[in-house]
Design a protein around this nucleic acid. Structure first.
Lengths: 227, 227, 227, 227
DNA sequence: TATGAATGAGGTTTCATTCAT
DNA sequence: GATGAATGAAACCTCATTCAT
């Protein structure tokens, strides 16, 4: 193992321990000592790798989110159609929480409500990741799959808000039992809520049929805009 | 002013101050001293009315939620149609946060992720309040306004999740600028997503027409069921 | 009931409650609130009768000791002989504790080790009471019942020290079971230890023992038994 | 200095300071800050070595008592005769207090009346130490030096009670001036009070005649109770 | 006389963080 | 690089006590 890797491994080890302890105890109740114990290092060693307890917390989602975005881009590139892609996003996010409840607790119960987190590099990575949702929605709008007059940011809020609300409920009170059971109902609700065939606003209870799929746009074509 | 009222007033005064300080500083960073200063009482006086700092926090939404439910029931009784009632709920909730950002910060940034809060009486009141959403959704399902095969709890998660996610964003990064601008798009998305006329699921873009509205059910008929 | 008497009764009521609570909790752990509750008065009322918590404590033995001295003087006047009187003192003191354990706890566990108590009026009454012991001992010395070369203050320390040590043990660990069983052995030990007929001093016994002494046992041989 | 020794030294340093401050101020009035100042460490350092203020208090007599017992066993092994050994015990105990008044104040004014202390390990060590007294008395009973019908626990109470009562008096009001002046009078009183030569029970070695004695009550009438 | 209500004052304890080794 | 040992800083909470009514 190279020196570089050894350092990386040690850092990973501490981050893993921190994730566990923060998830179980919350930020304030968690102590550096307990994290150090869990990571089999001394308290002081943690400070060799992270300047403060808060920085340690903020670092937890960094790599995960960066890799998550990379993986998602690959998956999405294999899928045709904005609605299908949206389902993939929803599936992927719920599936991830289902298998990483500690991570979910750290991100949704601690970081999501932390004002300081907004100033971090990690938050920037999270924003980039979250832009995927907007990109897909815009793609659907441009392709004609989705209505033109929707607010993609609202739609993203619907998706993220619903998922995160549900995961919090799952973490704290155990309901729903199974996160993945939400994938299809949520996808359906959102897609039905925004798809082109829905004529709600122009004419009440009208009929619209779209038989052909529009051309997919490549994700890499999407502009890196501000949110 | 009667003795009863004086005590109530003092309690209210402290709760108001606590709401402000908790909203600005968060739970841990807020100090009893600062709350006391804000409330123009001594530290010790706070402990005459609330046994611990945490209990003080937990008490903040009690009356508000209780009254909120009562008010909502009145409003809803004046509205016909589940979709219209749902819009009212969404409007009311967003409108409330728009005018009570400190309250929003306390509830959404502090209490929503607090495991201990789940054990409180206040939480029970919040649950009762949240049942209103489910009741309306079920009303729509029974009346035929909404599809029969939706999960009312998921729909509630969509509404609450979206609103709360948006309010957090509004509180922390100032976007969206105007919470009430979300009312119609969100209502439309949800109602379109679940309404009867829309028989489509993601695989089939089908056509369904429903011209007549079914009979409304009164809210007061709704069973007080467990969730 | 005259006004005077009503006040006295209220004071007595508070003192009784204080005795109970102090005995059960100790001085610091006892609270004015608990004493007030026990006495069926408000906290503030206690301060109508006693200037401070400490003064309340210090007042507890005042009347009891004053009356105790008076009673004892009567009893003693009926008894002939210093040894008999000494037995009466011992009996009286142990009997009193046997029937007033709360009082014993207050006096022996709290007041006896309190430096401030030495400055009080109550302490002066206690000193007068304790002088009875010295008086009896001196009486015995003068009458020839006791040796002339004893220190009456030491003898008093033996009596009071033994009794108080025993009562503390009785209060805290329940041994001895019966305080009054100590009366005669203690009286005998002290009276034999100081009476005229006993002409031995420590320098002379060694001569008497040499021949018939059993073998010494080494301390290290002693079993480490439970007591 | 080895690490082990350094830790021991630091602990000792804190215990010494605590002894001083507790002795001067009492338990409640003493503050951790003052102890820390006296020990030249920070407040927090005290909590590295002792979990609570009360535990710190309870630890003070641990080593001293353990070593005291060990030393006493050595001394006693060099002395022949139970009476002589008893004098040694009395001497040793008074001598110790004479030279360790702070320790005396902690043990006699604070710990002796503390119910919680009875649950500690230190108290068990004290009990073992106190058994030495009983062992010596029993030795004297078996050897024939002391009467057979005495209660060794009462005799111990006489010795400990007298000494502790006297030391408290010495500490609080400065009388007696010299603790060691009590050694011989107390030894004489006790030994005379219980020795075999005492004419009370028609001992074999007696050369004394008692003409004016009032009727004794037989010790053997008393129940032989447990301590 | 009695008390409800208010508070001043202060100490124990916890930990994140530092630094010499 | 790793850590044992030390500590600065701070805040909750408790009650004895006061005083207007």
């Amino acid at each position: 193992m190279t020196k570089q890797k050894r350092i990386g491994a040690r850092k990973e080890q501490i981050l893993k321990a921190a994730e566990q302890v923060f998830a179980k105890k919350g930020f304030q109740q968690a102590t550096i000592s307990e994290i150090a114990r869990e990571a089999n290092v001394s308290d002081a060693t943690i400070y060799e790798y992270f300047p403060t307890k808060e920085e340690l917390l903020f670092t937890i989602p960094f790599e995960t989110t960066r890799k998550g975005k990379k993986d998602l881009l690959l998956h999405l590139s294999l899928i045709r159609g904005a609605a299908n892609k949206m389902r993939a996003l929803i599936y992927w996010y719920l599936h991830f929480f289902e298998h990483h409840p500690d991570y979910g607790a750290v991100v949704l119960l601690i970081l999501k409500s932390n004002r300081e987190f907004l100033k971090t590099d990690t938050y920037q990575v999270v924003r980039e990741w979250a832009r995927l949702f907007v990109d897909i929605i815009k793609e659907g709008m441009e392709s004609g799959e989705f209505k033109k007059d929707i607010d993609p940011y609202l739609v993203r809020s619907v998706i993220l808000g619903t998922i995160e609300h549900s995961v919090i409920s799952w973490l704290l009170i155990g309901r729903p039992k199974d996160l993945l059971s939400l994938v299809d109902p949520l996808t359906d609700l959102v897609v039905n809520g925004i798809n082109k065939e829905d004529a709600m606003d122009t004419s009440r209870w009208n009929i619209n049929i779209s038989l052909e799929r529009p051309q997919e746009k490549k994700i890499s074509d999407m502009p890196a805009e501000n949110e």
